[in-house]
Amino acid sequence: MNAKRSDKIATGVLYAMSGIIVLILALLLFYILANGLPHISWHFLTAPAQSFEKGGGIGVQLFNSFYLLILSMVISTPISIWAGIYLSEYAKPNRLTNIIRTSIEILSSLPSVVVGLFGFLVFAVQAGFGFSILSGALALTVFNLPLLTRNVEDSLRSVAFTQREAGLALGLSRWETVIHVILPEALPGIITGMILSAGRVFGEAAALIYTAGQSAPTLDFTNWNPFYIASPLNPMRPAETLAVHIWKINSEGIIPDAAAVSAGASAVLIIAVLLFNILARLIGNKVYKRLTGV
């Protein structure tokens, strides 16, 4: 076989294989949306789930997913920003820094089920939080911190060093300069990273089944006092999320319309993740434009 012909054949094969990947995604999206979208209605999005009958919704699960997401972001955002500042501003090239970086790398590659089990052991059992929003949010924080921290570090590093010198030369501390000058400039990158990781957290289930639990008690949406047991805001109640719900009805298979509910819920999940992706881009660009004023 001559070189020209093998070049042509190889190119053809590469085209075909790349095409297959595109087809797989198309098939996935088509399958989920075609099966799921017809099932999505206002009733489906707001009604509570049914255990043994048809026609249940995902209202509580949807609320739980958002509540958990917000709570875990509230906990992990400041920690990741402080930790990211340490890595980009204060970490000296020495052994301690090596240990820190290795730890973060290990944490980011841990299977999420291990993070979930750790959360179960420490937050649910040892700390006595039980299967609760709080345990779930803390587990998600553990799961989320390494990526967020690295994103903050990278975003801060992308701001020119001369900006730090400008602050220092005015008698400001490195800390003030970073908080008030560098951080605002790095914000577009940080926000983009946060929203993307929010999408990841929104779809996460393995870290939650033994921390936030697998049950969704009926909520009383008229009482928002966080100390009331059926209050949507009560952080100590168990809270099955949308992703956990999909897993659960498929593994236990008690409800008769499991396939339809799963398809609908999957479609909602995918649409949410898509929205997070689009939002990340839009907001990142917008913040960037506002900050630079150009």
Binding site: S80, Y86, I100, S103, P146
Partner: peptide, 29 residues
């Protein structure tokens, strides 16, 4: 400024320390 620097350094070190402690705790538990 120097006090703020000290506090900031402590805060950022505490945050990174927390992450390392979590990793160690996961292994130990």
């Amino acid at each position: 400024a120097s006090k703020r620097e000290k506090h900031g350094k402590i805060l950022s070190f505490a945050a990174i320390g927390l992450i390392v402690i979590v990793v160690v705790a996961i292994f130990i538990f």
